[in-house]
């Protein structure tokens, strides 16, 4: 892993995340979030998580973000007005977050310094992840399908208009 690749990617991730949080327009936030997700996909690739990186692009940047944009368009949201009157909240949150981020970064840095394990060439390929998923994690995997089904049904019930046709 070359610092030449890592630092630009990391910078892109942080800056786009900041843009998500600060952008006045929800559409801009969403576009910045896409950038964050793509940057993270690059990070996953660097960490030899090839399948996860591919899923990140397809599922998050693709499917989930389309859903976000769709809802933003559906609700026809305007730009938010400038944040006023909540200085206490903003500075409080910012201060606490800076302290916590610094502390966490320090602890994580100190506890994971040094070289990691030597990885096999096939680490993170579809085959290896699938083997784990369909052996050790088979039951949770199957339960995931139930979760998704429940989510789909729940989403339909929640989002449907009360006077929608076909209702009992």
């Amino acid at each position: 892993m070359s610092p030449l690749i890592f630092y630009p990617v990391a910078a892109a991730a942080v800056l786009s995340a900041l843009a998500v949080v600060t952008a006045r327009s929800p559409v801009r936030s969403a576009m910045a979030l896409v950038a964050t997700l793509v940057s993270l996909a690059a990070c996953f690739a660097m960490l030899q998580a090839h399948l996860v990186a591919a899923l990140q692009i397809i599922v998050y940047a693709g499917a989930v973000m389309v859903l976000f944009l769709f809802v933003i368009m559906l609700l026809n949201l305007q730009d938010d007005p400038p944040e006023t009157g909540r200085a206490g909240l903003r500075f409080g949150a910012g201060g606490v977050a800076v302290v916590l981020a610094g502390g966490f970064a320090k602890v994580l840095w100190e506890h994971s310094a040094g070289d990691g394990a030597v990885l096999a060439e096939s680490f993170g390929t579809t085959k290896v992840v699938a083997r784990s998923l369909f052996s050790d994690y088979l039951v949770p995997f199957e339960l995931t399908s139930v979760l998704l089904l429940v989510a789909v049904v729940g989403a339909v019930v929640l989002a449907r208009r009360d006077d929608a046709p076909g209702q009992d």
Binding site: M1, V14, C43, A101, F104, L108, S112, G116
Partner: peptide, 12 residues
């Protein structure tokens, strides 16, 4: 670059 760098990025 080690995994530690990614951990710090994650925290931020």
């Amino acid at each position: 670059i080690t995994s530690a760098h990614f951990m710090v990025l994650s925290a931020v």
